[in-house]
Design a binder for these strands. Structure first.
Lengths: 240, 240
DNA sequence: CGCAGCCTTGAAGTAAATCAAGGATTGTGG
DNA sequence: CCACAATCCTTGATTTACTTCAAGGCTGCG
């Protein structure tokens, strides 16, 4: 069942068995990808969308100097570039961060779903809106939090998303990226990420080493990052 | 024709006359709103969506200290909280910036459209994805541009959106907000906005006074803001 | 062994925040 | 009609968070 993590803990239960079967059969290919591999370049017409099955992917844009700004990080179960279907071309690049396994869905098959399955269509729409909600929180993070807050918030978000698909137990999870990647996500230099991680380590809040995140003091971490998971629309994680 | 500005210059031509009639008849009420009026509070269930007919609205979230971060600014023709239909509750507040006229669309009427009109549904979906694209550009702005770049980019975006709905001639447009609002959008203090506006004024790039923006040197403005309108998906404004 | 990639730390520089005060404009009530 | 209050704009002085530049160390690998 390739789509088992899609919308997991997020109204997946609203999908009928026929809806799920329709989605499964829309997949035409499964592919293994290496780390740091470009999948879609900004501006080029797209004809397929990518469902991430395993690993981490990201979406990003470059500034004039060629510096990256990540705008999204994706985990298993995410329909990474579903928005490419209505948009027809993307405004950003899509790439893997780590090794990954993906399922490919041609847009022609999505068109059939839209024509025939209003309920599934609405949930596909819903899933792109969760991405938009995460974008908004990303804006908040960059606009209103300082460096330690940004890193903390980002890692809280990742943990929550990974827990929803069974890839984190809430204490530790794998995140095989480097400090520079983290900086590109949180709008700061790799050097400063290093100093912030040291602070978090010294305060016994969080450890990030060898591609592994260990949350030592979740309360403090969430407080530092001003984190409230409501925006992730995960079942049961309502506004506190 | 209340919906005449909806998706104007953005594939509105893909809507059939019946689609447009269906959308028009989904509107149950038109309302005039004062400036700085809260419409939707984060977390509360929503049952209607708002099509902005005239004026400026915004969406924002507060940090712990109560400081606002704007995550979107809307102009005439924008379906401000259409995403509230699939999401059922919002992760942010929605308010007017200026006096405004809005059309209200109950979600029950949207449900009928989704059930009966796949083509219109896909364009409604599309319109929420343009918002997401603007969110991404907003992330880029905050993460990768300095203060003068952020202000410049933001005003370029507003001008492009307003031109698409005939509210800017490309030289000047009304924007009746204050410097502090601008700061809340661009992630900086009002004081610093003031200094940046002075720079833009002294360099004869742009004037912002009395709620009116005058673009004096568009080339420079776009260059300072690293602005490329491709992400707005406005017809004819393709990737350069 | 020697190189590449990543992490770590220090020192100096800079963009923006903060604190503070005054000035202009508009509205308001006596 | 004018005093004054409120709001917004403007500018200066100081502080702070983060960047930049630089160098060295660790680890794994061909």
């Amino acid at each position: 069942m390739l789509t088992k993590d899609f919308l997991r803990e997020r109204h997946r239960d609203e999908l009928s068995e026929e809806d799920i079967a329709a989605l499964e059969s829309a997949i035409t290919e499964v592919r293994e990808l290496g780390a740091r591999q470009l999948l879609v370049r900004a501006g080029e017409p797209v004809t397929m969308s990518t469902l991430l099955l395993e690993g981490f992917m990201c979406r990003y844009m470059d500034d004039r100097a060629g510096e990256r700004q990540l705008v999204a990080v994706h985990v298993a179960g995410d329909f990474v570039d579903l928005h490419g279907f209505p948009l027809k071309r993307l405004d950003h690049d899509v790439a893997t961060l780590t090794g990954a396994r993906v399922a490919l869905v041609p847009h022609a098959n999505l068109a059939r779903i839209v024509a025939e399955r209003p309920n599934l269509t609405k949930l596909l729409w819903f899933s792109t809106l969760i991405d938009a909600a995460m974008h908004r929180e990303w804006i908040f993070r960059l606009g209103r939090l300082n460096a330690i807050g940004r890193i903390s918030h980002f890692l809280c978000e990742l943990d929550a998303k990974l827990q929803a698909v069974g890839r984190s137990d809430g204490l530790r999870f794998e995140l095989p990226i480097n400090q520079n990647d983290l900086g590109e996500a949180c709008g700061m230099t790799g050097v400063h990420v290093n100093r912030i991680l040291r602070q978090l380590r010294e305060q016994k809040v969080l450890l990030f080493r060898n591609g592994m995140v260990e949350i030592q003091d979740r309360k403090r971490l969430e407080r530092i990052g001003e984190f409230d998971p409501a925006y992730l629309y995960i079942n049961g994680a309502e506004k506190r």
